[in-house]
Design a protein around this nucleic acid. Structure first.
Lengths: 228, 228
DNA sequence: CGCCCATTTGAAAATAATCAATGGAAGTGG
DNA sequence: CCACTTCCATTGATTATTTTCAAATGGGCG
């Protein structure tokens, strides 16, 4: 399955169901396919730590990764969830600003940043692709700021679930992460996340198939929730 | 004053006092200097609206600009404040996702995006500079997410003031925007912002010189506030 | 000088966090 | 394979923070 390791298949931004803005960049980056090494992580194993030298990009082939950062007061902030197809490491200067850990058993492909940079220096189209990818991430970051700055707990959860549901056409939503992970991602406590889920279940908007798999029954109701 | 219109003098990110991460990119973009047009806006005049075609970049020469977006419920989110030296338009796909308005009388220089893109296509170093600038903005966006997701009202205000104070070496802080602007930027109400300011004044940490100018008396105290 | 708008301040209400206890699932080792 | 253990999730009660509503103050500008 070639597409699985082609950079060109990467999604622009984790957890976002916003419509594509024009054609996907990255087709010109297929030349990188052969330089990637496949690595596997077990649950809670770290891909890198905050402060580590950022000399690689990664793409998730299987499983899921969370980017996390422990704050001064001991609380934890989750920067992003990276699911299948997502690209890791685009943001990061010399060093990583946050750690990355596997949520479950996870398989990734690793690209040396040096190689990517060299390719970008040679081929303007590759550089342009990188710029477009980062622009997309910046746009996603802005959406998340609106969420964190102006949305209620329920709205955040609704937006989060809609983002995940955008992946699968049927209503199946895979939640590999814990409630605490979700809380740290949305700026809420685990308890608030749990209560919101319960309310959605009671309201018949979602059905819980197992602890880590939901079915979205009423998409319209969720959409209504994020538009107060 | 050549430096004033050189792209190379732009700051990496609005409202952030984080240390520079290596040498500033952009020196290779001096070739753009001659293609910029100077424009002037009065208070509350719009530079562009959300949805407008994004065919230009701008740099603030004088004054200040806010990027704003009205949410479905009528509330307003401020994406960023752009102060002197800041570069506008790096995030934006085909169209702008938010409006940009002058906070007071503001002078900007405008660069056609087409020209910048063409230059990037010719000169890998220019493309690399753009990538680095966007990376820096992404890093700043992540910091803001931590602020919006995990900080209290007082911590947000402290971080905001420290970011502004980072500009001027002496403790003078210029606040061209209103309390409402600040609230919409930090995910707080105008009243909460005002109360936080009052508490800082009472505590002798800041002194209010005029409505839009503060003096930072006790920087260490502010720093302590953001590290609970 | 007076008006208008931004700001400040106060009191009440709402939202989410915290504290606390129970329930349930997954994984371990006998 | 089952029981034990541990971690995660759920639910309830209380507390804290921020918002909302309301009123008064003050500055800037015509």
């Amino acid at each position: 399955m070639q597409a699985a390791i082609a950079l060109s298949t990467q999604r622009e931004s984790p957890i976002s169901d916003r419509a594509n803005q024009g054609p996907m960049p990255g087709d010109s980056m297929a030349a990188l396919d052969h330089v990637g090494a496949v690595i596997t992580l077990q649950r809670d194993e770290t891909l890198f730590l905050g402060g580590d030298k950022a000399d690689c990009y990664f793409k998730v082939l299987k499983g899921a990764v969370r980017s996390s950062k422990v704050l001064d007061d001991g609380r934890r902030h989750i920067g992003d969830f990276y699911l299948i197809g997502d690209f890791i490491g685009l943001d990061a200067g010399e060093t990583h600003g946050a750690a990355a850990e596997a949520i479950g058993e996870t398989v990734l492909i690793r690209y040396a940043r040096r190689n990517v940079d060299a390719l970008a220096a040679e081929q303007p189209r590759v550089a342009q692709s990188l710029i477009e990818l980062m622009r997309a991430r910046l746009i996603a970051a802005r959406e998340r700021m609106v969420l964190l700055g102006h949305m209620t707990a329920m709205e955040r959860i609704a937006a989060f679930l809609l983002g995940l549901a955008g992946r699968a056409e049927d209503g199946r939503i895979d939640l590999p992460m814990t409630r605490t992970d979700i809380g740290d991602y949305l700026g809420l406590t685990m308890e608030t996340v749990s209560r919101a889920f319960s309310k959605l279940k009671t309201g018949g908007i979602i059905v819980q198939r197992s602890m880590h798999e939901l079915a979205l029954v009423d998409r319209a109701a969720l959409l209504a929730l994020i538009q107060r």
